[in-house]
Design a binder for these strands. Sequence first.
RNA 1: GGACCCUUAGCUCAGUUGGCUAGAGCGCUUCCUUGACGUGGAAGAGGUCAGAGGUUCAAGUCCUCUAGGGUCCACCA
Length: 851
Amino acid sequence: MDLPKVYNPKDNEAKIYDLWELSGCFKPSGKGKTFSMVLPPNNANGNPHMGHAYTLAIHDIAMRYHRMKGEKVLFIPGTDHAGFETQVVFERQLEKEGKSRFDFNREELYSLIYDFVQMNKINTENNLKKFGGSFDWSTNIFSLDKKVVDSAYSRFKKMWDQGLIYRGERLVNYCTFHGTGFADYEVEFKEEQGHLWYINYPVTNSKEFIKIATTRPETLLGDTAVAVNPKDKRFEGLIGKTVKLPITGREVPIIADEFVDPKFGTGAVKITPAHDPNDYEAAQRHSLPFITVIDLTGKITHEMPEDFRGLDVVHARKKVVEAIDSLGLLSKTEDYRHSVGHCYKCKTIIQPLLKEQWFIDMKPLAKEAIKVLEDKKIKFYPDSKRNQLIGYLNQLRDWNISRQISWGIPIPAFQNEENPDDWIFSDRVGQELIEVDNKTFRRDPDVFDTWFSSSSWPYVALDFPNGQNFNDFYPLSLMDTGGEILFPWVSRMIMLSLYETGQIPFKEVYIHGYVLAEDGAKMSKSLGNVINPMEVLDKYGSDALRMGMIAGRVAGVNRGYDTRKVEDARNFCNKIWNIARFCQDKAITIDIDTPEPESIADNWILNRLESVQNSIDNDLGNYLFGEAYEKLYHFIWDDFADWYIEASKVHQNDSVLGYTLKKCLQMLHPYAPFLTEAIWQSFMANTKQSILAITILKKGIKADASKSKEFDTLINQVIEIRNISNNLKLKMKTLNIASSSQDEMHNKLLIKLARINKITNNKIYEGIKLTTFEEPALIVVDQKTKLDYSNNLDAKIKERETSLHNLEQRISNSSYLEKAPKQLVQDTKNNIDSIKQELTSLKQDLNQINN
RNA sequence: GGACCCUUAGCUCAGUUGGCUAGAGCGCUUCCUUGACGUGGAAGAGGUCAGAGGUUCAAGUCCUCUAGGGUCCACCA
């Protein structure tokens, strides 16, 4: 025998991947329908996690399934430079070496990170191969590839020319630790225990005060107004007057604005336009000045009163409160829980700061995206994500695409040294200074938000506008991502693809849930519950990892990682391996398209195969990966191995056995590509050269229904006999059947499968009567054993009687007869009849025993 | 303040458009060294489908409410 007793993935996986890669079998071929996917680019900055393994499994199952349907399939791998994310990872590494980003200039840092990313990129690509990804590697794409950068630049220019991109001083989410601005989706809001301070602002030339409530007293240094609701009677006389700000004594107006909620706090709000988004907008409506209190390092600026200059926010807050208190203007302090924005990486509190940045006006883009989503031009699994996305797009604000970091695609814009408002586009980003029309322009030091470039992934990966792949495969068939990037990525791919190509980027979106840790918590390094997929792969094999991830998972739902599922999948691999060993031992060939069924078992397994294949086909068409897996699992293990192969030991049919194994390998291939290919190769070694991955899975064959039904009957008979003999601990079994008319093969199968010693045809009626035989049949036992069995019989009769009662109640309901489908009513009637028959027989049997 | 998801066997979870006796894996009990496989084979035990109400001939499945767990969104000072 060629195959070792236990399947060892390590013997095969690398070899098999090489075979695929060298043969070029994952290049698109064929002329039929197309199916295409682009892998969400893995961040080339670290080790893979379970989410990568899971995402890849989903992708690759879909790809291999469609490829084996004979479709023309394109599967594009890729990696992302992951700008800010990578810089953070790299800085942590620097920190371990006792260095920081400030030890290097921009170019040095870029080049260091570049090397770091190249190393990780190669590592990532190797892992994608280990996971079995059936990629066309000639299409591999990296987010700093020329085509990606060019596309970002041309899009930037087009949008700029059309007024969709503008540069302006806006309130930006700023992380003072990382020294960069963020988009809204990079801010993490968390509930925090803080205080609400009530402060009396003295009204100018009056003994009156207007009391405001604030969570950020330090910003009062930059207040430029106090606002109240115009309908709020309490402040009627005050609107239009001014107050003298505590500490600074600056005079600012009391204004009326609808945005103020009279029920909150005191009904009067201090307005700090430079540090609060609401206030910023109010200030614009009322043409108020902007005064910056906090600088980019998170400290109080030097324009502020001397006592506070250079203090960080926490200390400044304390000192301001003290100062106000000593002025007698602090009315009261309350504990207060509110939500505060944090940097999603370092958890530093995000400061809303005024800063010049590049923004994209999202309204027109979002509008188009909402339209295609509302028209259901893109199908979502699960559908609820579509509505979530619409909700997100509806409230989307302008997108800050500037990042003040060195790792990323430089923004191709230059500023006139003489005139700060004069900006021009140029892709000469390699130079810091350029000359245009005798004027010197300086390059914007910022880089793009990573999502600005990766949003073009679907069409750039396909070489828009003129590439063959773009012609053949756009829009992509399916996009699968985790829920966490639905907003930053999926939404932007839709918007930017619509903008650039005028078409949707993909027809369907599958959102998978997170792979949580085994305890149900999020996997995170700080919790120490991270499971490395490469270690799992090493221990159980790539196929087991894939199947273990897929088993029991459903679109959009988070689920803990479960070692037991991977173990179970590993066992399953071994099962198939041994089925193959059995077949090889029997000198079976599998290159068979037209099996020749003879026995009832042959016909049965072919019919089962046909029906399971259809069912799986239907599931995979609807991306029910877990369901299809389970069906395949049970077909192969229960039907094929436990019934058909066992029956084969009685009578072997080479063509049906070989055909069934072939179909199993093909159907299972998307789930367990390495194992099935290894088996395939071992069978094909002596015949013709072929690769399982690119074979076409043909439709199943329908066999003789009545023969296959007879095997179903046989199965029931075997189960009944096994049940009785297990119950009574029978070692030796004689089956007595009244007539000898039963087919000889049927008897042989009964003997083998039910482990009967012999079958007799005596007229003497003695023993335990069987209910699954048409003619009288019984297991021969002595009187004592029979008495032992009467209790079981009693229980069985009771259970049947309950069923009968339930069914009879249903049938006696006239509404049921009227309204339920006729077939269902008929089935119920048939069921009642058969239960009645069974009961009669059971009762007879019981009588016999008791007499 | 919105939106969504989850609650089914000891554990982890399936259950598509309502349909007859609610499934799987693992675990558990009993048995089997049968010539592909002990990462195996056979037979079992185990569930008032979170609770309440409603729609229906029929509800785990649809609707409403309640309780518990989770996620996301939102500029309430």
